[in-house]
Design a protein around this nucleic acid. Structure first.
Lengths: 143, 143
DNA sequence: GATCATTTGCAACAAAGTTGCAAATATTTG
DNA sequence: CAAATATTTGCAACTTTGTTGCAAATGATC
């Protein structure tokens, strides 16, 4: 069965992150995997309905962040978007060195893994720890 | 007098944007000019005290955005930061093609005008309208 | 399967943002 | 310059978003 495989994958990921296997974590991870793109807290809430308390969703997202399972994408619309990390993300230390695309029409936010953030030369005195690049425009569907 | 000059500058800017000259607009613009870096809604509110209603600050920022007087800087902490645009910004159409720096220690957000966002090659089908680059790290003061 | 640690839901709250409407302030016009 | 008109502001009420403490429920361990 196909679902069983995804479920195995999820359980392995949670184990690896030293998290106990709970319904909310399983389901929220599944939502991320099925979505394939970045989701705001709100998106997750509307997808889980009233299966979980709002607070649980907040806490689950925080936990996933701490464990390096998801990462945030900066936006200008007062809504943090979260996306699944690739395997290289260590605990509390993200390497999401890829470009993010936000469609102005449908709002879909995608990680463009193929494209890395180009290096830049900062002025004297600045020290960079993280660089992120967000591209707005029209996505493949909305073009 | 020095203040008179700044005030003239502000009045000219508001006229140019076809906005009526009101206290809130004058004072909020002055705050931006004096700050020299990006400010969140909250920062402005704490600087104006109870001189204006909270709603007025929201509306003033929206108006400035529409008129291309300020632009937003994407952040991952659920707080939109606003910064003054350079003159090239047309109404509703921003060209803030520079790199933004957010200090992880003091939170100061600055526009690094000297450094332009490097061009990137998006995959087939995507069309970019705006690219923004945000660098996190330690600023000159906090290094 | 009992014990212990962790997670969840609930309630109550704080903060952030929005909307409609009347009063106040700007701008325009005679 | 003052009256007429247009715009902006403050207030009240509300929605949405995010947080915290604590008891009950669930998961892990032996």
């Amino acid at each position: 069965m196909k679902t069983a495989t995804v479920d195995d994958q999820i359980i392995r990921l949670l184990r690896k992150s030293q998290l106990s296997i709970t319904d909310s974590r399983r389901i929220i991870l599944e939502i991320f995997i099925q979505a394939g793109n970045a989701l705001a807290h709100h998106d997750i809430e509307s997808r889980t309905g009233d299966k979980f308390d709002r607070v649980t969703v907040y806490r689950t997202l925080h936990t996933f962040m701490e464990k390096g399972i998801i990462h945030t994408i900066p936006t200008t619309d007062n809504s943090i978007k979260y996306a699944l990390c690739k395997d290289e993300c260590a605990e509390g230390h993200h390497h999401d060195n890829h470009v993010h695309f936000i469609c102005d029409h449908c709002g879909t936010t995608t990680c463009i893994d193929e494209i890395h953030v180009p290096a830049i030369q900062l002025p004297q005195g600045y020290r960079a720890s993280q660089i992120s690049m967000v591209v707005n425009g029209a996505c493949v569907k909305c073009k």
